[in-house]
């Protein structure tokens, strides 16, 4: 039971990694728990603004399940 976490842009710069696979029991079962897991693990992320996407859809809360892909996305800057 694990999830994949992806980090982009300024967030990836703060974490030093772009992707990691983490056991669900380690992060908890919800987006809220995942956020606090990441903020504890990577303190610098707390200073940055970001949105979370689960399986490529933006979301602010909800539960996580085995195989989910969660992305931490800094402000968009396209165009």
């Amino acid at each position: 039971m694990s999830i994949t976490i992806k980090y982009f842009g300024a967030i990836a710069e703060a974490t030093g990694v772009t992707e990691e696979k983490v056991a669900l029991e380690e992060v908890g079962n919800s987006i809220e728990e995942l956020r606090s897991y990441c903020l504890t693990k990577y303190g610098d992320v707390g200073d940055l603004s970001f949105q979370v996407a689960v399986n490529q859809s933006l979301t602010t809360s909800g539960s996580l399940k085995d195989g989910d892909e969660v992305a931490f996305l800094p402000p968009f800057a396209g165009g």
Binding site: G9, A10, E13, A53, L73, P75, F76, A77, G78, G79
Partner: peptide, 24 residues
């Protein structure tokens, strides 16, 4: 819509090789 909804990120590279992250 593209500017608001597409997850694209821009690293502004300065002439002295430092950088900052662009925000729309």
């Amino acid at each position: 819509e593209i500017k608001a909804k597409v997850p694209v990120f821009g690293k502004e590279l300065f002439e002295d090789e430092s950088h900052q992250w662009k925000v729309n």
